[in-house]
């Protein structure tokens, strides 16, 4: 257990905790690589024991045992996902029958960039033809974003990560605005959220992308964060919700669990965000 005091929590920890609080108490969650895994497992341990947790390698409905858990899965493929799990399957089942077949209520994702309409980029910065920076690629990000019933995105609040339009949309959110998902052949989706290291965003659409502006709307801020500071960090005129919630700081229990689930600081290495 870390010796750090809960009141010394990091913004990355706050992001994971705030995302965990947003997850539905039941239904099926599918978590992509990175902090979404930690957030999903934290939610299962503390708030949503009935929410099923799965990863795309094929582990469907894996359950951490709060009494004996030594870690959250490290990556989507950790061998511990083979124990206390309902089904060990493959990607045709996890990303095909399970996800594309319509069984996933909420996808948990991160990425290199998120844009005004909640699209993600995990492929490259600059033009694909001659990128300024190339990344590993999508893995299952594309299908989890496009095909989940709703999506929660964890994204550090940095100017290079929040952009007007992704340099390359690898993963569809509301694409270019109202109606774009249906035109592309995708179903409506939501309620979606983006959780950053400063606050929580919802989207301006009442019906999963058919109407409204479909833009990100800042709806909550973390302790000591001024909404105008967030606005200044985003390159488009960011809309603010009529009422902006003050997201409560982490509880002692939340911080203790989060640190216990990441004993090697795989997800929460200081300075990573």
């Amino acid at each position: 257990m870390s010796g750090a005091r809960p009141e010394d929590y990091t913004l990355a920890e706050m992001m994971c905790i705030a995302a965990a609080r947003l997850l539905p108490s039941q239904g099926n969650a599918l978590a992509g690589l990175g902090p979404p895994i930690l957030s999903g497992v934290l939610a299962k341990v503390l708030y949503a024991p009935d929410l099923t947790f799965s990863t795309e390698v094929g582990a469907i409905d894996w359950r951490p045992d709060p009494a004996t858990a030594t870690r959250a899965p490290v990556g989507i493929h950790d061998e511990l996902l083979n124990v206390n799990v309902a089904l060990t399957s493959d990607m045709i089942e996890s990303l095909g029958t399970y996800l594309m077949g319509g069984n996933v209520d909420v996808g948990l994702l991160t990425g290199a960039q998120v844009d005004r309409f909640g699209n993600l980029n995990v492929l490259c910065l600059g033009p694909y033809e001659q990128p300024a920076r190339r990344f590993a690629g999508t893995g299952g990000n594309t299908e989890i974003a496009g095909l989940s019933g709703a999506v929660v995105i964890l994204m550090p609040q940095e100017p290079r990560r929040f952009v007007e339009r992704c340099d390359f949309i690898t993963s569809a959110g509301y694409i270019s605005g109202p109606g774009a998902r249906r035109r592309a052949g995708l179903r409506p989706q939501g309620p979606n959220y983006v959780v950053s290291t400063m606050g929580v965003y919802q989207y301006d659409t009442p019906d999963g992308g058919d109407s409204g502006s479909c833009e990100l709307v800042l709806s909550g801020v973390f302790p000591n964060v001024d909404p105008e500071v967030v606005q200044a960090l985003v390159p488009w005129p960011l809309k603010l919700a009529d009422r902006i919630d003050l997201v409560p700081p982490p509880t002692v229990e939340e911080i203790r669990w989060l640190r216990r689930l990441d004993p090697y600081r795989y997800y929460l290495t200081p300075g990573r965000y």
Partner: peptide, 9 residues
């Protein structure tokens, strides 16, 4: 598949 719909791919 229905993957890749709506993306720059």
């Amino acid at each position: 598949t229905r993957s890749f719909l709506g993306t720059d791919y």
